[in-house]
Design a protein around this nucleic acid. Structure first.
Length: 383
DNA sequence: CGCGTTTGACCCGCGC
DNA sequence: GCGCGGGTCAAACGCG
């Protein structure tokens, strides 16, 4: 399993992580029998590299567990506050009314909600926005609106757009206590994925299948996903837990030997609106002391040869470029068992590309800064 | 023209 | 049985 993962999934060229010499040995080209000391050295480096990745993965898991704990405690606290507030504000006269209507699903006490498959969600909204729309990742069809006796604000009734296949309904009404809060009550469980989950699954599948390379003209799932996450996270506190849970569950499934771990699920992309999402992303920063780097490459004049790769650090990006060059060498010289090259050969390869640039994430300004091929060549010589 | 929203009519359960 | 109130239906409406 380990060996398989290394062979198939690692594009990092671990050999180079501690290699200061400009002369490189192309991976897989040395003979199995003729250089055991070199192999041992490689094994050591592999083990060291894997150990580092393992530790990194542990840190990621700890971070996400911490995130979940923080969220859960905060959620509990908020629920308690809301409950206290409701109890405080209900007068003896009103209490009689509440006791009556509690028999309906709408006024059922929160403690009973989980038991009856009813979930209530408080969502912060713009007080001037009267639309009663709560974005939660699912598509809804409004089928009614009523003014209720206890609340001057109308109550909107929605069915899941997959009805009658999906039985879920929701009611949305502005909170009586706070004009800036709407209360969404959900009945039933969806028997399908949300649009958010669809995007996440598609993204995860795409990543697992295509590894590190993607075409420019592929669907912009990242952007869709990020926009949706940002939107939902900024409006629906419950969705935060779902996203966090989804991320945690996905991370747990990812083989830690694969290089695409947290950077794939929490890429440090800047988002103009998603402040809450941004804060979630920032939680990953201690693990992102490396600068996330995107390599943009066009190997020939044909625009179809455009592609991009992303890496967790500049050095890994440089390794990625070297690995591409080494693959090209291997393709050009299939009969040769050993191929060596020096840094000038690599420069020639870089210069021969139709286009090459690197976008390096700068944490201080939370944006990517472009770098030309001259800069890449310099970095290659350092790495 | 299709699809989602609006809105008045209707249904139903509950309390009196 | 009647009235009340929440929930649902479906025709009308409006928008892209």
């Amino acid at each position: 399993m380990v060996a398989t993962s290394l062979t198939i999934d690692l594009n990092l060229n671990p050999l180079s992580t501690t290699d200061d010499t400009p002369v490189r040995e192309v991976e897989g080209f040395f003979d199995d029998d003729d250089d055991n000391s070199f192999e041992n050295e490689v094994d050591d480096r592999m083990a060291c590299y894997l150990h580092r990745k393992n530790n990194e993965n542990k840190e990621l898991k700890e971070m996400l567990t911490g995130l979940m704990d923080s969220y859960n405690s905060l959620n509990t606290h908020v629920k308690k506050l809301m409950q206290d507030r409701e109890e405080l504000e209900s007068s003896p006269k009103k209490r009689k009314f509440d006791e009556t209507v509690q028999q309906s699903s709408w006024k059922r006490p929160k403690e009973d909600l989980p038991l009856s498959g009813i979930k209530r969600v408080y969502v912060k909204v713009d007080p001037s926005d009267k639309s009663l729309v709560v974005k939660d990742g699912y598509q809804w069809r409004k089928y009614g609106q009523k003014v209720t006796r206890d609340n001057p604000s109308p109550r909107a009734y929605y069915k899941c757009s997959f009805a009658p296949i999906c039985p879920v309904k929701k009611k949305v009404q502005r909170s009586m206590e706070d004009d800036g809060v709407v209360v969404a009550t959900y009945e039933g469980e969806h028997n399908h994925r949300s649009t958010m989950q669809e995007a996440a699954y598609a993204l995860a599948n795409e990543r697992e299948i295509s590894s590190s390379e993607r075409w420019f003209n592929s669907p912009k799932l990242d952007e869709v996903l990020l926009e949706q996450m940002a939107s939902y996270l900024s409006k629906d506190p419950n969705f935060t837990s779902e996203v966090a849970a989804a991320i945690f569950s996905k991370i747990s499934q990812v083989d830690f030997f694969k290089k695409h771990t947290i950077s794939y699920f929490l890429p440090p992309f800047k988002h103009a609106e998603g402040t809450k999402f941004q804060s979630l992303v920032n939680l990953g920063q201690p693990l992102m002391s490396n600068k996330h780097t995107i390599i943009l490459m066009q190997t020939s004049q044909n625009r179809a040869t455009r592609k991009f790769m992303d890496y967790e650090s500049i050095s890994q990006a440089m390794d990625g470029i070297c690995a591409l060059y080494e693959r090209k060498l291997k393709d050009l010289n299939p009969a040769m068992r050993n191929i060596t090259y020096d840094i000038q050969d690599l420069y020639n390869y870089i210069d021969g590309l139709a286009d090459l640039s690197a976008l390096v994430y700068d944490h201080s300004i939370q944006a990517y800064l472009p770098n030309d091929r001259q800069w890449i060549e310099t970095e290659c010589s350092i790495t």
